[in-house]
Design a protein around this nucleic acid. Structure first.
Length: 591
RNA sequence: GGGGUCGUAGCUCAAUUGGUUAGAGCACCGGCCUGUCACGCCGGAGGUUGCGGGUUCGAGCCCCGUCGACCUCGCCA
């Protein structure tokens, strides 16, 4: 090692020791004949180096130093003169009186400084990621990530899990997300697919008898990005044999309790709260509700049947729903302009025709342009049903039950943030369970698996598998943190008969199922134990534990919304020779 | 694929109703400064206003197109 200490560890206790530090120049303060002060930084912290004026040669070197030069400084740790300690610095009690200063490497003028108060633009940060990653905040996040992953691995090891790797080059499975494909050189015209998750492999490991499997697995999905979604991401993937939902949920409960305690310093009461999918959709309009605040959805459909107002009455008569949220203390905030803005939001993002509203005045009356369509007693009933109090604004969505819920979920999430209805530092963990097995795909006119086609139905719903698929619920569970799906899993089907029934329902002929998943179906015939598991989104988990609102800030080299790496400029064209070897000819997409 | 916000100096931003030579802070370059720590002082350099077109006597500003970043809907078993 060139250095004896890091830039973050020296204190008064080290006084009079001779030390060598290495790091990046954060800042120099040249006092002319008074010498030069140099703040040197590494990922552990910052230390002040002092170049004294009588050391002529060193002074010359010091005057050449610029931001982000890499230097080595050797000298004696010295207490700073009385009254000159810097309380804002961990090492502020001391400074190094240099007797050697080396420039290990110069630096071009950086496009931005890691120490800058103002955040550089996201483009600049991504293009010069190696500089962005020098920012203390990024370094803290990556350290946090490392600590969390270590704790997760420890936890599973203590619980008897085996860390097992599975292939990255696999076979495309048409269900689910779009695959990233890798052309085969040896087999012209054939492709591997990168794993969307190690789902099938881990099931095969269960069949192989490795009853507690865990993997920190890189996964790939070629779908559009979001603030909380990258095309390449990391899952904590686990699977257990001879278990039911309770075992998996309990195992993750224990993990969350430990992480919350050791990372956040909070005690989570176990078991973590659970809510059925139906309840989540009814109360929040979404399957991953943010439970840090109220403002739940209220179903006003029954009430709407008693009124003459065409928009409401007409909707319920057509079988649609009237759903509402009661926004507290918003009557004054919600100007006409604000309501127009929210209306546009639900129209453009959720396809609602409009947004009806009523304000609750100081004397408890509901007012607004639509109020004249209701009688006094109807308004009073509504006020009571929605728990409207002075200052409340009621926002109504009149549409299909699900669409109305989705729009109000959007409003609830947006307004919760805008109106600061919760403390952003607060954390809330819960489970959403008993998902439907199937969702009807109107476009393709068929049933589709809501999770994946290997998900086991609830035992009690098994008889309904053929008679009423919509009513069949799955042994599926999602871990929800602060309104984000942090993970999801299922108990799998372990017998071939049920599996075939599910395939059949999904419109997959035995031949087709055999063609797509033959190896798994075959394996299920060779003594498959009951098994199930879960996968947690590590990146998202880090984001939430770090209090970030963006997944790119906890990934080293993330992609942009167009799935580009601005630093390496991947993806990019390849040599003709490479294409020839693969037997690939590129045609313009719209040619 | 749709909708929205944004794009001005290396960085973060400003520029009145469309009107003179597009400004500031930081960074950079030169000089000065004997205890600084957001050091200070003096001076300097730095611009295809993302790109292309249009309207206009005149465009950073208005219009059309396009590219890019971000947010979002669709999508994400």
């Amino acid at each position: 090692m060139l250095r004896t200490h890091t830039c973050g560890e020296l204190t008064a206790a080290h006084a009079d020791q001779t030390v060598t530090l290495c790091g990046w120049v954060e800042k120099t303060r040249d006092l002319g004949k008074g010498g030069v002060f140099v703040d040197v930084r590494d990922r552990y912290g910052k230390t002040q180096l002092v170049v004294r004026p009588h050391l002529q040669e060193m002074l010359e070197t010091a005057k050449q130093l610029r931001s982000e030069f890499v230097i080595l400084g050797r000298g004696k740790v010295s207490l700073r003169p009385l009254g000159q300690a810097n309380a804002n610095m961990a090492t502020g009690e001391v400074e190094i009186l240099l007797d050697e200063l080396q420039v290990l490497n110069a630096s071009k003028v950086p496009p931005f400084l890691p120490s800058a108060q103002e955040m550089p633009s996201e483009d600049a940060r991504l293009k010069y990621r190696f500089i962005d990653l020098r920012r203390p905040k990024m370094q803290q996040t990556l350290v946090l990530r490392s600590r969390i992953v270590k704790k997760i691995r420890d936890y599973f090891e203590e619980n008897g899990f085996i860390d097992i790797e599975t292939p990255i080059l696999g076979r495309s499975t048409p269900e689910g997300a779009r695959d990233y494909l890798v052309p085969s050189r040896v087999h012209n015209g054939q492709f591997y697919a990168l794993p969307q998750s190690p789902q099938i492999y881990k099931q095969l490991m269960m069949i192989a008898g490795y009853d507690r499997y865990v993997q920190v697995a890189r996964c790939f999905r070629d779908e559009d990005l979001r603030a909380d979604r990258q095309p390449e991401f990391t899952q904590l993937d686990m699977e257990m044999s001879f278990v039911d939902e309770e075992d998996i949920i309990g195992m993750i409960d224990g993990l969350m309790k430990r992480l919350a305690r050791e990372i956040l310093g909070i005690e989570l009461p176990l078991p973590l709260p659970r809510m059925s999918y139906d309840e989540a959709m009814r109360r929040f309009g979404h399957d991953a509700p943010d439970l840090r605040f109220g403002m739940e959805l209220i179903d006003c459909s029954a009430w709407a049947k008693t009124v003459d107002f065409r928009i409401f009455r007409g909707a319920v008569d057509e079988g649609k729903a009237i759903r509402a949220i009661n926004v507290p203390n918003a009557a004054e905030l919600f100007t006409r302009k604000k309501i127009d803005e929210l209306t546009l939001f639900v129209q453009e993002d959720f396809g609602l025709k409009g947004l009806a509203w009523l304000k609750c005045t100081t004397d408890g009356k509901l007012e607004g342009p639509i109020a004249k369509n209701f009688t006094e007693s109807q308004l009073a009933e509504l006020a009571s049903a929605t728990a409207a109090v002075p200052g409340s604004v009621l926002l109504f969505a009149a549409d299909e039950y699900e669409r109305a819920g989705k729009a109000l979920y959007g409003l609830r999430r947006r307004l919760g943030l805008e109106l600061k209805l919760y403390d952003p530092g607060q954390m809330h963990f819960s489970w959403v369970v008993r998902f439907p097995m199937f969702a009807y795909d109107a476009e393709e006119n068929r049933w589709a698996a809501m999770h994946h086609p290997f998900t086991a139905p609830l035992d009690s719903d098994l008889p309904k598998l053929e008679s009423d698929p919509a009513a069949v619920r799955a042994k599926a569970y999602d871990l929800v943190i602060n309104g984000y799906e942090a993970g999801g899993g299922t108990i799998r089907i372990h017998d071939n008969v049920t599996q075939q029934k599910v395939f059949q329902l999904l419109g997959m002929s035995p031949e087709e199922a055999e063609h797509r998943f033959g190896f798994l179906l075959e394996a299920l015939r060779f003594g498959a134990p009951p098994h199930g598991g879960i996968a947690l989104g590590i990146d998202r988990l880090i984001m939430l534990f770090a209090g970030l609102d963006n997944i790119r800030d906890c990934v080293t080299f993330p992609k942009t919304a167009k799935a580009i790496d601005l630093m390496t400029e991947a993806p990019n064209v390849v040599d003709d020779r490479q294409l020839r070897e693969l037997g690939i000819q590129v045609k313009p997409k719209n040619g």
